[in-house]
Simulated scan of single mutants.
Amino acid sequence: MHLELSQLSVHYAGRPRPAVEDVSFGLPAGGIGVLIGPSGCGKTTLLRAVAGLERASAGEIRISGRVVGGAGTHMPPEARRIGMVFQDYALFPHLDVGRNVGFGLDRMARTDRAQRVSEVLALVGLPGFERRMPHELSGGQQQRVALARALAPRPQLLLLDEPFSNLDVDLRERLAHEIRAILKAAGATALFVTHDQMEAFAIADAIGVMHEGRLHQWDDAYSLYHRPATRFVADFIGHGVFTPATIRHVAGKVVVDTPLGLLEDVAECPLPCAYEGGDCDVLLRADDILHDDDAPVKAQIVRKAFRGSEFLYTLRLAGGQTVLAHVPSHHDHKLGEWIGIRAQVDHVVTFDRSCPARGRALCQMECTASGGDCEPALAPPTQLV
């Protein structure tokens, strides 16, 4: 692994709990990782610890196999060969683009420095911008210059803290795709911090979801959405609800009995004995619920949000349960109207209903063949990629 964190903790004096607690993950050379989570979850503190701006209280940080931070080790930031891009760009307003980009190349000969500045400006799509001043550039162009400056010294790791937060939403996602292509072309290893899920999905090879200082899951976007390891990840990523259900045997096979009928694609679900009485909560995403006028289950539209090509409907079932559904926008039903719906779930994900705190990991249990007793096989909240 190019960047590897092992049981990393960061504790501030006077605070009852660590800002970052027991975090482990790995990022291969050339990989792009993104940390997301609510405000105050510890993602920026973790990034600062990797940069050397915060000291680790426990665990280790390794870059290219070398320990740069840990309980007894602290390599200063300037010795770590790390490039940083901040949300405010931090360009020098009195220097032109060329001198901004070449700022960290003072040890190079003048001709070599000029050549490297030209190379990275071409890489970020701004060839010939050397003589422009920062105030003459758009926000997106300023962000590209900041990226070029960080890449110019050929750092072994690039850290980006909310790099698109000052840009409008449309530009944010487009620039995320473009910067991913730039980083891949440069062969750079990068770790981002953001609060924007769409931004994370656009740029990341691996995404870490943090909450209250802990890393709940480190995985690709598809797995976070369809196979969340904890209840928090399931709730934080995408649109969905938890609906009461029961796992039971029907005609010799395991099914999940929900208010929308039986769900049978349960290859990744626990057996009924995993939960007391088989009672659990099942995660139903908005794209798991299909509008079907011929379906026997009806639901009332209590809220609708227009999304251009589709509506996001909030629906109430006759039993009072709430579900969400994406419906093509030409199906413009009125609030209060009852429509037919059915569930089509490819990945049935269940959580312990009686003890939500146990939702720190999926209750992946196995019934032993001998006595039917259940033994926990809880998946760890983090994994190396």
Rank of each mutant, 00 (worst) to 15 (best):
L3S: 07
E4D: 11
S6D: 15
S6K: 12
Y12V: 09
Y12T: 12
A13N: 10
A13K: 14
R15T: 09
R17K: 14
E21D: 15
P28Q: 13
A29I: 12
G30N: 11
G33K: 01
I36P: 06
P38R: 13
G40E: 11
K43A: 08
K43T: 01
T45Y: 00
R55W: 03
R55A: 12
A56E: 03
S57K: 05
A58I: 05
A58H: 08
I61G: 07
G65P: 11
G69L: 03
H74L: 06
E78G: 08
A79F: 07
D88H: 14
D88Q: 15
L95W: 04
G98A: 13
G98V: 12
D106G: 11
R107N: 13
T111F: 07
D112G: 14
R113W: 11
Q115N: 12
S118A: 15
E119T: 06
E119L: 00
L121C: 02
L121Y: 04
L126W: 08
L126S: 07
G128V: 06
F129V: 02
R131W: 00
P134T: 11
Q142G: 05
Q142E: 08
R144L: 04
R144Y: 12
A146G: 06
A146C: 09
R149Y: 04
A152W: 00
A152D: 02
L157R: 05
L157N: 00
L158W: 06
L159K: 09
E162S: 07
D168Q: 10
V169I: 09
V169F: 11
E173H: 09
E173W: 09
L175Y: 04
A181E: 12
K184F: 10
K184M: 12
A185W: 11
A188Y: 06
D196T: 04
M198F: 10
E199I: 07
I203L: 02
I203A: 02
H216G: 09
D219F: 02
L224K: 00
P228Y: 04
A229P: 01
V233T: 03
D235M: 00
D235E: 14
P244H: 07
A251W: 13
V254G: 02
V256C: 10
P259E: 08
L262G: 03
D265F: 10
D265Q: 15
D265H: 10
E268D: 12
P270L: 11
D279A: 09
C280Q: 00
L284Q: 03
D287S: 01
L290R: 05
D293A: 14
A299T: 12
V302L: 13
K304M: 08
R307P: 07
G308D: 03
E310P: 13
F311N: 06
F311A: 06
L317P: 03
S329G: 14
H330V: 15
L335P: 06
G340I: 08
I341H: 03
R342Q: 09
V345N: 04
V345A: 02
D352R: 02
C355N: 14
C363V: 07
C363Q: 10
Q364F: 11
M365W: 07
S370R: 14
G372F: 01
G372Q: 01
C374V: 13
C374W: 01
L378Q: 14
L378F: 15
V385L: 15
